[in-house]
């Protein structure tokens, strides 16, 4: 565990908590893509099956349990409890265009052709693109609430911080995982346009609004 990895995890944790607070306090999931949230739930379920087979640390287990619970809880809040506030007319990204290619890619490019390893690989590939329905929704409506922007910023920063962690681990531990690194870079690049808008608009107190 190094400082970049810890900062990345905390950023990821913060993103999830910000989203849950937004939904809970406003009793609304307006502006949030249910499709992205379903993809994140699939990502965690397929990645953390090793909870049953491999113990790493209490920290690792606690975080995995929280990510699993919170992502399934978010899907529950969006599709059941606060269903009436879910903005499904604007949430139209076709997730099969993400699920099928990442599933195929995980069958071809993996560390080992085993069920657990392929599911892990699939979760890594899927996570890298899972935010696309949310970004598509923001671009479709042309704006995002500040709290949604903070959520996206924390969520995007997390993988960026992991890249620093991977650089650190490569130099100081001789460890690298090429699948995680390439997917993590793709994931971070997808946020670049949003990061630019966040820094130039939201941090200056303006609402995130896309140019018409």
């Amino acid at each position: 565990m190094n400082i970049f990895r810890l900062a990345g995890d905390l950023s990821h944790l913060a993103a999830i908590i910000i989203l849950l607070i937004k939904i809970w306090k406003t009793r609304s999931c307006a502006g949030i893509s249910g499709r992205s949230q379903v993809l994140f739930a699939i990502v965690f379920i397929t990645r953390y099956l090793d909870l049953f087979t491999n113990f790493i640390s209490a920290y690792n287990t606690a975080m995995k349990v929280f990510f699993l619970g919170s992502s399934i809880g978010t899907v529950y809040l969006m599709y059941l409890k606060f269903k009436a506030t879910y903005d499904h007319n604007h949430d139209t990204f076709r997730i099969e265009f993400l699920l099928l290619p990442t599933a195929l890619l995980s069958l071809v490019l993996n560390h080992e052709f085993s069920v657990m390893e392929i599911l892990w690989t699939f979760s890594i590939y899927l996570e890298s693109v899972a935010i696309l329905p949310q970004l598509f929704m923001v671009s479709k409506t042309g704006e995002a609430e500040s709290i949604t922007s903070h959520y996206l910023f924390a969520l995007g920063s997390y993988r960026g911080l992991y890249i620093l962690n991977w650089i650190y681990r490569y130099y100081f531990e001789g460890f690298y995982d090429i699948i995680a690194i390439v997917a993590g870079c793709v994931q971070t690049i997808l946020y670049c346009d949003f990061f630019y808008l966040y820094i130039t608009k939201v941090l200056k107190g303006k609402k995130l609004q896309l140019p018409a």
Binding site: R5, I56, N60, E112, W120, F175
Partner: peptide, 10 residues
């Protein structure tokens, strides 16, 4: 070494 690394990250 092993083909698949231990996935110790989240």
């Amino acid at each position: 070494g092993k083909a698949a690394p231990d996935h110790d990250e989240l």
